[in-house]
Every structure is written in C-alpha cells, then in structure tokens.
Amino acid sequence: MSRGDSPSVETRRPDRAALIIAVVLALIAGVIFWDVSRLTGLAGYSQVGPTTVPYAIACCLIVLAIWTAVEGFRGDFAEREPQQFGPVAWVVGGLAAQMLLLNTLGFSIATGILFAMTARGFGKRQLWLTIPFGIVASFVVWTIFAKVLQLSLPAGPLERLLF
C-alpha cells in the first residue's frame, strides 16, 4: 500500500530483500483487516472487543513495514551471509517426505527417510547406508516410546510385521 511509488526512487541502491519483507508485513496487516472486518463486534460490556486487538496489531505491522522499507531504501538493513540452498532443500524435502509418508508407511520408515535426507543435507551422501540405518534407529525409538511408554505413534507395515 505504501509501496506504490517506490520503484522510481533509486538513491542508494535499495535492499530488495528489505522491501520484500516490508511488503509481506503490509500484506499480513491487510489480511488481518480483511478477516477481522467480518467479525461481529459482540464486545458485550467491554469496549475492547474481539476486533480491537487485531486491528491494533495490524496498524503496528503497517508502521513496521514502513520503517523496514525506509531502512531498505537507505541501504542500512541487516547484512547477510551467503546461503547454500542445496542442503536446505534436502532437509526440507526430508521433513515433507516424513509428513506425507507417516500415515501410510508408519513412523519408522517415514522418520528413517527424514533421518537419511537430513544427513545427506549435512554431507553424508551414502543414502543406501543411511536410509536403513535411519529406519533401524527410528524403529528402536518407536519400540521404546510406543510399546514401552504407550505414546501413540503411527504404525506402518514394518511395525505391524514385527509386533
């Protein structure tokens, strides 16, 4: 909203990331305004109703967005180290795989895959070795927590085969 006239101003090489963050903050504020506006007031006897605090938060987010944009234009936003995205993708992939496979393949296999993919992200490339190891380790954990301590952890083919 406050970003409308921004692209033309180019004084000290604005920090693109800071501007994106500012836009995201403003968008969140917008979503709050939009969602809360359809609530009925229903404040009862207090003049602070269910909508007051979210509106206040949204206003503060807009102020923070403007502040962030100003810092971005002045170029004195945070410095950052270069990031390597390959390893991050491996770990995120592992978490996504566990999430999707958990209910069909059970805790041990899904978590074993997460284990191996995380290790891959940190440089252990031998998946043929880390996947079986991860599954065995997860199975031991599953046995302790699900069988001995009665924590409910999803069972899959492997767990049903052995118990």
Binding site: L95, L114, F115, T118, R120, G121, F122, G123, K124
Partner: peptide, 10 residues
C-alpha cells in the same frame, strides 16, 4: 554434524 542434526530432527 550429519548424525547430530539427523538425530535432532528425529
């Protein structure tokens, strides 16, 4: 590190 962080996520 590979084992440590794999274990943390587990």
């Amino acid at each position: 590190k590979p084992w440590l962080y794999a274990g943390i996520l587990l």
